[in-house]
Simulated assay, not measured.
Amino acid sequence: MFTRTARMFGFTLALFTVTAGLTALSVSAQPDKKEEKKDSKKVKSKIKITVPQDDAKLKIEDKDTKPTGVTREFETPDLEAGKLYEYTFSVTWQPNNYTTLTRTKSIEFKGGDDIVADLTKVDPKAPDKAVIRWVPTPDDIVEEMLKLGKVGKDDVVYEPGPGDGRMLIAAVKKGAKKGVGIELDPKKAEEAKDAVKKAKLDKEITIIEGDALKDRDYSEATVVLLYMGNEFNNLLRPVLEKQLKPGSRIISHRFVLGDWAPDKTIKVTGADGEEYVLHVWTVKEKSKK
């Protein structure tokens, strides 16, 4: 029995047999009274970690590690046999040139037991975090998106990652009664606020600085505008399915929502001569369940 969990930092890289230089914390497990009289046996635990791609950056207990490759192996320092420990693993990678994903997983183990951590799969207890490099949607394509979603005077438009705020500004100018943007980048949030103020729409449009995926309420939205990447959309999808009312529309430039088939997809040629793909979904009762 254990009344506390010990977190042991500091381990040796089995691949290089050098110390990783992690700092040990003075947190110890409390054995039961029967164990107190016994001499603790020192053991090591082997760690095997699988990450999403070769160049992913791996941290153990928030400390950087050096090995690369999809499978990485380490070895802990001396541990007390049978004592309960916990490691937290964090991996960051770029599936494409505009998306950075971070995935975390915590594992409890007993000293001497092998540790296997598969970071190629999402941990439902610790959802992925996504950071998207902002790329502007051309103004004429924004207009096509608003037409596709039939944005009008009764709509409340939300946009995760509004960047410079151009899509929200266009939506309100089109007739939407309210716009809300949630921007992770503080500089972009300020840029969007300045653009909204310059357009004299600061009463109609609110820019929130923060994570669009974390504890956000989208239930007020009747329209959600997206240009965030497939990975981000997949993380946002369950939130939208749960919170949006039937009849709400989701309009995306280029990217999809996993296997949720769009109600309509169109291709338009922009003023720049490039072809753009736009999708729209209308939330139905069954999509909320």
Results as ranks from 00 to 15, higher is better:
F2L: 06
R4D: 14
M8V: 13
G10W: 01
T12S: 09
L15K: 06
V18R: 15
T19R: 15
T19M: 07
A20M: 13
T23D: 08
L25A: 13
K41R: 14
V43Q: 08
S45W: 02
T50G: 01
T50R: 10
P52G: 11
D54W: 05
A56C: 11
L58Y: 01
L58M: 03
D62Q: 14
K63H: 14
R72F: 06
E80K: 15
E86P: 10
T88L: 05
W93Y: 15
P95M: 01
P95D: 05
P95G: 08
N96T: 10
Y98L: 11
T99Q: 11
T99I: 07
T102D: 10
I107A: 06
E108D: 12
E108V: 06
F109W: 06
F109L: 08
K110W: 00
D113W: 00
I115V: 11
I115K: 00
L119E: 05
K121I: 12
V122N: 10
D123I: 00
P124K: 09
A126L: 05
A126Q: 14
A130M: 07
D140T: 10
E143I: 07
L146M: 06
L146G: 03
L146C: 06
K150E: 13
K153P: 07
K153Y: 06
D154M: 03
D155C: 04
V157C: 01
Y158E: 01
E159R: 05
E159F: 07
G161T: 07
G163P: 11
G165Y: 14
G165C: 08
L168N: 00
I169M: 04
V172T: 01
K174H: 04
K177E: 02
K177W: 00
G179Q: 00
I182W: 00
D185L: 04
D185M: 05
P186M: 14
P186H: 11
K187P: 01
K187M: 12
A189H: 02
E191A: 13
E191P: 10
K193W: 06
D194L: 11
K197P: 09
K200I: 08
K200F: 10
K203S: 13
K203V: 00
E204G: 00
T206C: 03
I207W: 02
I207K: 04
I208H: 02
I208W: 00
G210P: 01
G210T: 07
A212R: 02
D215C: 04
D215Q: 06
D215I: 02
D215H: 03
R216T: 09
D217S: 07
Y218H: 05
Y218Q: 04
E220L: 04
A221C: 01
T222H: 00
L225A: 04
M228T: 14
N230D: 14
E231K: 09
E231V: 15
F232I: 10
N234Y: 02
R237A: 07
R237G: 00
P238V: 13
L240Y: 04
L240I: 12
L240H: 03
K242V: 08
K245V: 11
S248R: 08
I250K: 08
I251K: 01
S252P: 02
H253Q: 13
R254W: 14
F255Y: 12
V256R: 12
W260S: 08
P262V: 09
D263R: 08
K267S: 12
A271Q: 15
A271D: 15
E274C: 10
E275W: 15
E275H: 09
Y276P: 01
Y276F: 15
V277T: 14
L278Y: 07
H279N: 15
H279Y: 09
V280F: 03
K284D: 03
K284Q: 12
S287E: 15
K288V: 15
